[in-house]
Design a protein around this nucleic acid. Structure first.
Length: 582
DNA sequence: TTAGGGTTAG
């Protein structure tokens, strides 16, 4: 850094500011600024703006704002740079407020300003403001500018308005890697994984440029689909194209491999990384957790010496402990959160503890824990306790919990099914009927169940009672064949999983049409004897299908890997890695 | 001088 002499000229200051900006050297920057004041040097608009940008880049928004506030004449660049600073720090409200002030004094935003301010239009009131800014951009003819356009489409996608986002994308007079990635990731972030993959294929075939961000977004969609074959292909493509393995991309690969069932490969990538962020650790912890490898979760977490855990880390660790029955370890870690205070536990963390206690059969303790929480219990928390009541046959608390769920979300079919399981387990068939009646009275909705299997570079999807599949007859015959075989080995269909008001024979038929069973049968038909059959389900796996899979694994000597909404179930020799709790 | 897309959880 140059020495500040008694007299520094414009070029001297400019060059010093540039150096500070490049190095992110805030204190040096402040010295340069102080020198100007001390020597009564009056910077022009350009130099003042440079000072402001330097402060933004060095992370001191307070200093930047001070410069802006004392500027006698503010340039559009200074307004935009300040809004950008707020936006990058997540201070969206401040960014929007400044934008409004700018409009109020008659300053006209340019394409830079629009592209920036639109990134602040997130959160509950984000879209409301965003739509108004969109119409302003339209009036000033900036809406089809490539940067403004990609900001706009990203804003709509993040607000769930994916059709509007796609419309804007289609209208862009030119597209590039950022706008293409924005729309793909928009679909992926909404869980519209197939759409994301289809769009990627189309754009890729049209010759779209791809970079590490594009591939990271695409891998998110492949994680969602558990499409291991595609995932491997994309990994290969990344290597062949010599796309730089930035941390973000490696994190996506860790996530993709573990969610596609190959957690050992995730660990290889994790171990090979020259530098890791908290997200790398989180992705690895989540991977172990989903596979029920709780001891690995705790071990890895305890080795996080140089990296600061965040809220997601604790979620991953507590969920991992819960899924593996490491109750005391989980409770200790939750206690440490309360003691250390570096990460304040939120309601999700409390929910993990309810799950931990419930799984261990400490139902009353879990119940009291909910009542003592500093938060209002959510349906998810009551739902977790209801599952525990089913596992540990606690009808008394189960009924109470069901009432709470009935108040909070009467339309959720899941709660009715679990209560019905609880009653059936206790042999209270009249109450099973009552639940069914209750369900009829309320308009209960259920997200349609879907299962899929990734075979021969194609994702085969099945719906419950699927009548559209070209091989439906062979598949149904295979399901029946398996059914007969496992029945001999002691499988009894769990009719309490069906809440339709039909006779038992019909219930059996409905159960046999569940998408998981169709996918299992299809997998049995198309894989070699030794291979693991990998099935994915969009919801939680039902009790009967879980049981079906266990019998199939035993009777047919096959290994099944079932990924449901929450975790993997590795089913081998008649038992499941989840220990029948999920 | 100022600008857009990204990875973990839910």
């Amino acid at each position: 850094m140059a020495v500040l002499g008694p007299e520094v000229c414009f070029h001297g200051y400019d060059s010093l500011i540039t150096q500070c900006m490049g190095l992110g050297a805030l204190r040096e920057g402040q010295r340069v600024h102080a020198h100007m004041i001390k020597t009564h040097y009056h910077p022009n608009v350009y130099l003042e703006t440079r000072l402001l940008i330097m402060y933004v880049k060095c992370g001191s928004l307070r200093d930047a704002r001070m410069v802006l506030d004392v500027m006698p004449r503010r340039s559009i660049v200074s307004w935009t740079a300040m809004i950008s600073g707020y936006s990058q720090s997540g201070l969206h409200f401040e960014g929007l407020d400044l934008f409004l002030q700018m409009l109020k004094i008659g300053m006209k935003p340019n394409e830079y300003t629009f592209a920036t301010v639109l990134t602040s239009c997130t959160g509950p009131f984000g879209l409301e403001n965003g739509i108004q800014i969109h119409s302003l951009a339209l009036k000033s003819n900036f809406d089809t500018h490539i940067f403004v356009g990609s900001s706009l489409l990203d804003m709509y996608a993040k607000s769930g308005k994916i059709h509007e986002a796609h419309r804007i994308f289609d209208m862009l007079p030119e597209r590039d890697v950022v706008s293409g990635t924005a729309i793909i990731s928009g679909y992926a972030q909404l869980g519209l994984d197939e759409e994301a993959l289809d769009l990627f294929r189309k754009l890729f075939n049209d010759g779209m440029e791809c970079n590490y961000v594009t591939f990271a977004s695409l891998l998110t969609a492949l994680s969602g689909l558990a499409a291991l074959n595609y995932g491997r292909q994309v990994h290969g493509l990344v290597v062949r194209r010599e796309v730089p393995f930035y941390v973000v991309l490696q994190n996506s690969l860790i996530d993709m491999y573990s969610k596609c069932g190959n957690v050992a490969y995730s660990r290889r990538i994790f171990d090979s990384m020259p530098e890791r962020t908290t997200i790398s650790w989180n992705a690895m912890l989540v991977g172990y957790g989903k596979h029920g490898l709780g001891h690995e979760v705790v071990k890895l977490f305890k080795s996080m010496n140089m990296v600061k855990p965040d809220g997601v880390t604790y979620m991953a660790v507590l969920t991992g402990c819960s899924h593996s029955g490491l109750v005391d370890e989980g409770l200790d870690i939750f206690e440490s959160m309360l003691d250390e205070k570096s990460v304040k536990p939120d309601i999700e963390h409390y929910g993990c503890v309810v799950d931990l206690l419930g799984r261990a059969g400490r139902i009353e303790k879990a119940f009291n824990f909910i009542l003592d929480m500093p938060f209002e219990p959510t349906p998810a928390i009551w739902g977790s306790l209801l599952s525990a009541c089913r596992l540990h046959a606690n009808v008394h608390i189960g009924e109470f919990v069901f009432q709470r769920l009935l108040d909070l979300e009467p339309e959720n079919a899941g709660s009715y099914v679990i209560l019905s399981n609880i009653y059936a387990n206790a042999g209270r068939w009249e109450d099973v009927l009552k639940v069914r009646q209750l369900m009829k009275e309320k308009t209960v909705t259920k997200e349609p169940g879907r299962s899929w299997i990734d075979l021969d570079k194609t994702v085969h999807t099945f719906h419950s009672g699927d009548r559209t599949h070209p091989q439906k007859e062979e598949i149904n015959a295979k399901v029946m064949e398996l059914f007969v075989k496992i029945k001999e080995a002691g499988y009894v269909p769990d009719l309490s999983c069906v809440l339709h008001d039909v006779d038992d024979e019909q219930k059996e038929r409905i159960l046999l049409g569940h998408s998981e069973k169709l996918a299992i049968a299809f997998g049995m038909m198309h894989t070699s004897y030794n291979g693991t059959i990998r099935i994915v389900k969009n919801l939680r796996i039902c009790v009967d299908c879980h049981n079906f899979a266990k019998f199939v694994s035993k009777v047919c000597g096959r290994e099944l890997s079932l990924r449901d909404k929450n975790r993997f179930h590795l089913v081998v020799g008649g038992s499941c890695s989840c220990g029948d709790y999920w």
